[in-house]
Amino acid sequence: MSGLTSIIIPTFNGLHLLRTCVEHIRAHTSVPYEIIVVDNGSRDGTAAYCIREKLTLVSLPDNAGFPVACNRGLRIASGDNLLLLNNDCFASPRWLSYMLDALYSREDIGIVGPVTNYASGIQQVKVGYSDLAGFIREAESWNVPDPAKWREVHRIVGLCYLFKRTVMERIGLLDEMYSPGHYEDDDYCYRARLAGFKLLVAGNVLVHHEGSASFRNRYPGGFQELVERNRRRFVDKWKVDPLQFIEERGDAS
């Protein structure tokens, strides 16, 4: 395991989620970390909250979208490990320690993600809780040291996306062509794999995900159109359909 982890949280008018996100990180993280909040032009008091809580804040004048916000955070991050975290994704006991164990289990592992209640593909698992207190109780028994639950995959969903700085040094930042968001994570996974990195789902780490809260807020009528547009952009760029990765449920070949 190595050094500091920079946790980068893009947010847009999601202070109610961001508060919970930060509280969970602080309550359940025992390894060195910094929090960088990239505020996409919120008008809900997010900036004042970040200053009050002494969080590193990047304040953008308008909503530039998820990939742009992530890249702004990545540019100022000082960690050996970089973690892109949705503002509606809530940490659990020992979450980061065990994800780092998976990340540093082999030299060629580049990106690691947890399992969760809400995601596409193999990272979604069946859970039994109905509130956040129940989530923490369930995660307490779920999050145990168990490399047998690590699984090599083709894609990691960007909701909680941990990677080594060496990955960014090799392949660069997220492709902002996908702004405001969707498929930038698939694109990054594809580039990482082309560069020789492997991807792992840490099945021994459960995090909670509220689920596309910001996107559905901003694009209530056009959410599916946005997803389809970016899928076409991925296909045009790589001549590969990213849906293949989802249909195979993340299994590595």
Rank of each mutant, 00 (worst) to 15 (best):
R94K: 14
W95H: 09
L96F: 07
L96C: 10
S97R: 13
D101K: 12
A102W: 01
L103W: 03
L103D: 02
Y104K: 11
R106S: 13
I109H: 04
I109F: 06
G110N: 08
I111P: 00
P114R: 02
S120D: 11
G121S: 06
I122E: 10
Q124N: 05
V125R: 01
V125Y: 02
V125K: 02
V125F: 03
K126D: 10
G128S: 13
G128H: 12
Y129C: 06
D131H: 14
L132T: 11
F135I: 07
I136S: 06
I136K: 04
R137H: 09
A139G: 02
A139K: 00
S141R: 13
N143D: 09
V144M: 09
V144C: 09
P145V: 07
D146K: 09
D146C: 12
P147C: 07
A148L: 07
A148C: 07
A148D: 10
A148S: 13
K149G: 05
R151Q: 15
R151T: 14
R151Y: 09
H154E: 13
R155G: 08
L159G: 13
C160E: 05
C160S: 11
Y161D: 04
Y161T: 04
Y161H: 10
L162D: 00
L162N: 02
L162P: 00
L162S: 02
F163A: 03
F163D: 01
K164H: 12
R165T: 07
R165Q: 12
T166Y: 06
V167D: 00
V167L: 09
M168N: 10
E169H: 08
E169T: 09
R170K: 13
R170A: 09
R170S: 07
I171Y: 03
I171K: 01
L174Y: 14
L174K: 02
D175W: 03
E176A: 05
M177I: 11
M177C: 06
Y178V: 03
S179P: 05
S179C: 12
P180T: 11
P180H: 06
G181S: 10
Y183A: 04
Y183W: 14
Y183P: 00
E184L: 05
E184T: 05
D187W: 02
D187H: 08
Y188S: 02
Y188T: 04
C189N: 12
C189M: 07
C189P: 02
Y190W: 15
R191H: 10
A192P: 00
A192M: 06
R193S: 07
L194R: 15
L194I: 14
A195G: 13
F197D: 00
K198S: 15
L199P: 00
L200T: 03
L200D: 01
V201Q: 01
V201C: 05
G203Q: 08
G203D: 04
N204Y: 01
N204R: 06
N204I: 05
V205W: 00
L206M: 10
L206N: 00
H208D: 09
H208C: 04
H209F: 03
E210P: 03
E210W: 08
F215Q: 07
F215H: 10
N217M: 14
N217G: 14
Y219H: 15
Y219V: 11
Y219M: 14
G221F: 13
G222N: 15
F223Q: 14
Q224G: 12
E225A: 15
E225T: 14
L226C: 08
V227E: 06
N230P: 01
R231E: 07
R232P: 03
R233Q: 10
R233S: 10
